[in-house]
């Protein structure tokens, strides 16, 4: 059975048609990277998967549960789907540990000690156990994003969504977050990741989805995507961002 099944999904923001006929089928354990120019609808697409955005037509089934208008149904889906945001979105009034244990305690009704153990386990896995009792504001951006990943993992999700997880980070912190994500990928979780990190895409993705103007333009496995992009728009996009990268690298040198 498909893990995430999107069929002909359409979404409008007033007159703006932000998702056009999106059909995306993700197998269990698959790692999908979604890329595309800004405003192409990538974030909106993955925000539909856990019901943060509604859609006007089409059908989304996540882990066997169909997303409908029913909030109970949506909450049911969210319990099994973790999400990591561009802006971290940690809860600033709670410590890192409390950020991680909140949902296990209140949603899964886990005893506090057990939740603490689980949280510490994940904080060790993202290599910030020593930050457990500090507040998010006291952490660096990279540490905050890793804490946010740990928070998402504490609900033991079957699917994890990343919405440009490294875009708000300073360059030297991007690697530590990408490393964490690569570790996750190796653990076999279904991952859907919106990112501009093409190195990460090449290394981790099973398939790369290229979006433009609300449409899926091309879906391809990484080697073919980078080596022989089928669509001219893909080629143009890759040309731009790879040029940008090498230009920046050249300046850096």
């Amino acid at each position: 059975m498909l893990h995430v099944d999107m069929q002909s999904v359409n979404k409008w923001f007033d007159d703006l048609h932000v998702l056009r006929d999106i059909t995306l089928e993700v197998e269990r354990g698959e790692r999908i990277v979604i890329c595309g120019p800004s405003g192409s609808g990538k974030s909106t697409l993955i925000r539909c998967i856990n019901g943060l955005e509604s859609f006007e037509s089409g059908r989304i089934v996540v882990d066997g549960i169909e997303l409908t208008d029913d909030i109970k149904q949506i909450e049911h889906v969210r319990r099994g789907v973790g999400m990591v945001f561009q802006g971290f979105n940690l809860f600033p009034h709670l410590t890192v540990l409390e950020n991680c244990t909140l949902a296990p305690i209140w949603v899964k009704k886990m005893p506090r000690e057990a939740a603490n153990d689980v949280a510490m386990d994940y904080l060790r896995r993202v290599r910030i156990p020593e930050q457990a009792n500090r507040f998010p504001g006291q952490l660096s951006g990279g540490q905050q994003q890793r804490a946010a990943i740990a928070r998402a993992l504490c609900m033991n999700p079957r699917i994890i969504l990343f919405d440009e997880p490294t875009s708000a980070l300073d360059p030297e912190m991007i690697t530590e977050v990408l490393d964490t994500m690569i570790h996750l990928a190796e653990a076999g979780m279904t991952m859907i990741c919106v990112t501009h990190e093409m190195g990460f895409a090449r290394q981790v993705a099973n398939r790369i989805v290229f979006m433009d103007a609300g449409q899926i333009v091309e879906v391809n496995e990484p080697r073919a995507f980078f080596g022989a992009p089928r669509h001219p728009r893909t080629r143009a996009f890759l040309g731009q961002i790879l040029d940008g990268r090498s230009a920046r690298a050249a300046v850096g040198r």
Partner: peptide, 20 residues
């Protein structure tokens, strides 16, 4: 974003309101 983060970890209206 705080509401969305709370929703994304599965908190429903009341826990999200009272705790976040």
């Amino acid at each position: 974003a705080q509401y969305e983060a709370a929703a994304s970890i599965g908190l429903s209206y009341w826990p999200s309101t009272m705790l976040i």
